[in-house]
Design a protein around this nucleic acid. Structure first.
Length: 423
RNA sequence: GGAGGAAUGGCAGAGUGGUCGAAUGCGGCAGUCUUGAAAACUGUUGAGGGUCACACCUCCGGGGGUUCGAAUCCCUCUUCCUCCGCCA
């Protein structure tokens, strides 16, 4: 959520920046400014009334103390009107605050200046590309065929147990998945990220904190009986670890990594592009999260990008990095780099990581602040990235490492797997 | 699930109806001392709103109530602790 003060002071530049997202934010920004004005005016009146009432109370108190009960009782009657008025104003104030909040929730983050303009994923800017795309023979199969051939992932079985998009990993497929999780976590902890295992369900406050609510309510599974949501990503519980915190400078940087399953309803997604592992309702992901001083957050973002690169290099998967354009940028993000692995057998790029700086957008909702060098509290910056999303890495490995005789295991994973080939 | 207890500033911890936004300790910051550091000593230090700046207002887990006045009394919810039951 954008900071009110910044909206007040920079309306024009905010509107201009939001145009990169192809939205005209003027109506909502105007509504925010009006409601803010309204809120302050109600607040001022309420404060004056309360001040008067406080003053009377003190007088009454001192009159009682000095034994002038009669005068005190006379004053009491004067407070009734004030009380009634302040009650009404309090209700008006709450309504104004709520309305203001609702409008603020509708304004997305301001794109970073480096974000290219554009509407769709086709307008994303490729910033680098690395790795060799293997040359496969004509009999190369997409991963869902390979999964069946070697009996390592069973989509139908998962559909029986739960539904489409909930695969069952079997045998070496399950082991490979576990190997990847361990490998990712090891890489991340070696790089200094502290490992955590957060809850897989979150409450409403956490959902609002990182911005999944109210914006993406329909994308999360909601457990009605307890009013909890299944996490769509570890970003939510891990970033919320510090909701409400007032940090000191020496706490920075705060860095975490965590493995969790992720649950996404993905309502309305069908067709060839969501086949196999390409898009699931439940999938595994290892996440990295950082909380940073504002001056350092873009350096941190670069560090995260570099870190993910080293993993993909070790896995020897061909990848490219995209800087998301305004139209494709997530609601809460200021700058996002997507990593995509080239799947030879499908002849397409698969998104396997998304690394973002949210600047103060989430921190504002989280009330995640720190004391700066002047002793002032200000909002921290939050960042996160996948390192990595398992299914598409798995798809990439299966497809790119296939041979007529079986699927080779990337060298770095062999110690984790305990075998060199799936056949 | 049942019975009790608790929730206070960055942390610990006093405070049971009227200058309490809140003692004290730790921590933080500034200074004295020191070649430097530590120790010691002195001062300072909650958050948010509001204002050009003051004033002023709000906040003692959340919500509601009693009262002229609530951290303090009542109701309710949440969370934590102890005991009992159940259980991976």
């Amino acid at each position: 959520m954008l900071q009110l003060q910044i909206i007040r002071e920079n309306k024009d530049s905010i509107l201009k920046a939001l145009k990169k997202r192809n939205i005209d934010a003027e109506p909502v920004v105007n509504a925010v400014l009006d409601l803010d004005e309204k809120r302050r005016s109600i607040q001022a009146k309420l404060d004056a009334t309360l001040a008067e009432s406080n003053k009377l109370s003190k007088e009454i108190g001192s009159l009682f103390k000095s034994g002038k009960a009669e005068e005190a009782n006379a004053l009491k009657s004067k407070t009734a009107d004030l009380k009634e008025a302040s009650k009404q104003m309090g209700e008006d104030l709450n309504l104004a605050i709520e309305a203001l909040q609702n409008q603020l929730y509708q304004i997305p983050n301001i794109p970073h200046e480096s974000v290219p303009s554009g509407n769709t994923d086709e307008d994303n800017e490729e910033v680098s590309r690395e790795g060799d795309v293997p040359v496969l023979d004509d009999k190369a199969l997409p991963h869902w065929e390979l999964a069946k051939k070697y009996d390592i992932i069973d989509f139908e079985l998962g559909a029986k147990i739960t539904g489409a998009g909930f695969p069952v990993y079997k045998g070496k497929g399950a082991k490979l998945q576990r190997a990847l999780i361990s490998y990712f976590l090891d890489k991340n902890t070696e790089a200094g990220y502290a490992e955590v295992q957060p809850p897989l369900m979150i409450n409403e406050a956490s959902g609002y904190g990182t911005g999944q609510l109210p914006d993406k309510e329909g994308q999360m599974y909601h457990v009605q009986a307890d009013d909890l949501y299944l996490i769509p990503t570890a970003e939510v519980p891990i970033t919320n670890l510090h909701r409400g915190d007032l940090l000191s400078m020496k706490d920075f940087p705060i860095t975490y990594t965590g493995y969790t399953p992720c649950f996404r309803r993905e309502a309305g997604s069908y067709g060839a592009h969501v086949r196999g592992l390409n898009r699931l309702h439940q999938f595994d992901k290892v996440e990295i999260v950082r909380i940073e001083h504002p001056n350092n957050s873009y350096q941190a973002l670069d560090d995260m990008v570099e870190h993910v690169k080293t993993i993909l290099r070790e896995l020897k998967l061909p990848y490219r990095i995209l800087r998301l354009c305004g139209g494709d940028l997530g609601f809460t993000s200021a700058l996002t780099y997507d990593f995509e692995v080239f799947s030879t057998a499908q002849d397409r790029w698969l998104e396997i990581s998304s690394v973002s700086n949210f600047e103060t957008y989430q921190a504002n909702r989280l009330k995640l602040r720190f004391k700066d060098e002047n002793g002032k509290s200000q909002l921290a910056h939050t960042l996160n990235g996948s390192s990595l999303a398992l299914p598409r890495v798995l798809a990439g490995i299966l497809e790119n490492y296939q041979t007529p005789d079986g699927i080779k295991i990337p060298e770095v994973l062999v110690p984790y797997c305990g075998f060199e080939e799936i056949n």
